[in-house]
Design a binder for these strands. Structure first.
Length: 529
RNA sequence: GGGCCAGUAGCUCAGCGGUAGAGCAGGAGACUCUUAAUCUCUUGGUCGUGGGUUCGAAUCCCUCCUGGCUCACCA
């Protein structure tokens, strides 16, 4: 439908790069070494969106996700934890689980958590654990190829990234037969069947080797390819054609450049395409859970509805950074935006906004959005005890809510409660003051407050109360030039109870409170000075 | 030093070759009902700078400035 000169939706642009006649494999991966920071959700969500786009075009596509549980434990934060120091440098699958009742080892513990997290967001790729790939020998052919070309690879590291490895270096880590560490070993001398290795005390800063030397086969799980080479091996094994990534990797002279060069040179294949996505920042700073800046993905995803989380990841073009502050008015604005995109989907599903909305849904083939109540309104409702959101929403819609609409309403209410509690600015909150505030009112306003005492305890319906308040304003003479009730009347009520000149619908407010309390307050504030 | 991103109305951003846009905020008004909602109208910008290409540029090219991220160890 687009002529080719028009700017296309980003997911379409990416999909356009791939030949629809051939099968495609979209890949992503993660090292299971800790909780997922919120920003790290962007990659998988983008990959999923592109995967879905390919699928919806009828392209033969797979979405492969590898769990890098053969990586060495190198997290600096872990070293300080009790009992963890001795495990530094070991492969993650060999590090003890933080909670053995949940998962048998460290890697699986964290993997299980992000797999569940992804599933909740509708991201359900084929998961492959590196331990299975290595141990089964699935990558042995690639390992052999890489080891035979070690010298060429060493040269590529040198020319592309200016990284110089020692002569005789092999791009592989052996699991030390003596101490079980993988991050501390240097391998050399591949003879086609075995390699020599040494577990060095000071090979890396973050772990200490045992000094063992030996000779062993690098196959069937005894070793792990180094990062760049492992990347190539997986591309080759799965036939990966598309892999996006963070800009930390996809930068000139960066990791991906090195892997691309190796893949072309050694594997004689064209590396996958893939865009580089920008990061989430908070106050201009990169989010970092270790520095206490930002939130973990599980935390946010447990609070936000999944489609809102996806929307947050997808509404901004991947190449642009997202300034994300979970506090303040972010949530209501995000939800307003989300609803606008939902409306766009109803009007024109093929618009960029419509597509973004569809890709934000957990289901790849979603129902169109139904009746929704604006988030900000729900936050107000929650602060007025007499309002029953289900009933109020039905009044608004003028019909019963469907099951899906009711579910959506309740998810919004849940988030609104959290928002009011944690993030809402004071302007968004109102609370009935426990004691009469010291506010200055006109004589007319005081008379009005005393007059409406008649209604308290007698009128129980909020709408009727609202009408009566209006009538009493007229009776009391609090009218403007046109004979209509002046704002002064209602302002008096808000000032008396909330200490500010505005608030929720006055009828709601007054019928929500204990009549005795209301009368007392009206007396206190309304009595002549 | 290399790479990437951003700089458009008070705020958040969209627009990415054809007479400057939206939402919110601000102002005025309508609905007998303050606030909110809904609707109508409205204020507000020399589109970071300087060049270039073009009949025409916020939009393409180059320079520079500002802010931010990122790589140059490992993964």
């Amino acid at each position: 439908m687009s002529s080719g000169h028009e700017a296309a939706f980003w997911a379409d642009e990416e999909a356009d790069l791939l030949d629809p006649q051939t099968p495609h494999v979209v890949r992503d991966s993660k090292t299971p070494s800790g909780p997922v920071p919120i920003g790290h959700l962007r990659g998988p969500t983008i990959s999923d969106a592109i995967f879905r786009t390919l699928r919806s075009r009828g392209v033969d596509a797979r979405f492969v996700y590898t769990i890098d549980d053969y990586d060495p434990m190198d997290a600096a934060s872990m070293r300080l934890q009790a009992g963890m120091a001795e495990h530094m440098g070991k492969p993650l699958f060999a590090v003890p689980s933080p909670d053995p009742t949940v998962a048998p080892d460290f890697a699986e513990y964290h993997a299980a958590r992000f797999i569940a997290l992804f599933a909740g967001l509708g991201i359900t790729p084929e998961f492959h654990r590196m331990r299975d790939l290595y141990r089964s020998g699935a990558l042995d052919r690639q390992i052999d190829l890489i080891l035979r070309n070690a010298e060429a690879i060493r040269q590529i590291h040198k020319s592309v990234a200016n990284v110089e490895h020692p002569e005789g270096w092999l791009p592989i880590s052996i699991i030390c037969e003596n101490c079980g560490r993988i991050g501390t070993t240097l391998a050399t001398d591949y003879d086609g069947k075995t390699v020599a290795y040494e577990c060095r005390k000071d090979y890396v800063e973050w772990a200490e080797g045992c000094g063992h030397t030996g000779r062993i086969s690098p196959f069937k799980g005894n070793s792990k390819l180094l990062w760049n080479e492992q990347w190539c091996a997986q591309w080759d094994h799965f036939g990966v054609t598309y892999e996006e990534g963070g800009k930390d990797l996809l930068t000139a002279g960066g990791s991906r450049d090195r892997s691309n060069a190796i893949y072309r040179e050694v594997f004689k294949r064209e590396p996958p395409l893939g865009l580089a996505h920008e990061f989430f920042t908070l106050g201009g700073k990169k989010m970092s859970t270790s520095k206490g800046v930002g939130a973990t993905a599980v935390e946010l995803a447990s609070i936000y509805p999944p489609d809102l989380t996806r929307f947050l990841m997808l509404r901004t073009h991947p190449r642009r950074h997202v300034e994300f502050d979970p506090g303040g008015t972010t949530v209501p604005r995000l939800f307003d935006d989300y609803d606008r995109f939902g409306d766009a989907y109803l009007e024109e599903p093929e618009s960029d906004m419509g597509k973004t909305w569809r890709l934000s849904q957990v289901s790849p083939d979603p129902e169109p959005p139904g009746f929704r109540v604006r988030f900000q309104i729900l936050a107000d409702w929650l602060q007025i005890p007499s309002v029953r959101p289900d009933v109020e929403a039905e009044k608004r819609k003028g019909a019963r809510l469907t099951a899906a609409e009711l579910r959506d309403l309740h998810r919004r209410l849940e988030l609104a409660r959290v928002w009011l509690d944690r993030w809402a600015p004071d302007e968004a909150k109102f609370a009935v003051l426990p004691t009469a505030p010291d506010v200055s009112l006109s004589d007319g306003q005081r008379r009005y407050l005393l007059a409406i005492k008649d209604l308290i305890g007698k009128v129980h319906d909020a709408d009727e109360m609202q009408n009566q308040l209006y009538e009493y304003a007229k009776k009391t003479g609090l009218v403007d030039a046109n004979g209509k009730p002046s704002q002064q009347a209602f302002a008096a009520i808000y000032l008396a109870f909330l200490g500010r000149p505005n608030g929720p619908k006055a009828g709601w407010l007054l019928t929500s409170l204990d009549p005795e309390f209301v009368c007392k307050r009206l007396d206190e504030v309304g009595r002549p000075r």
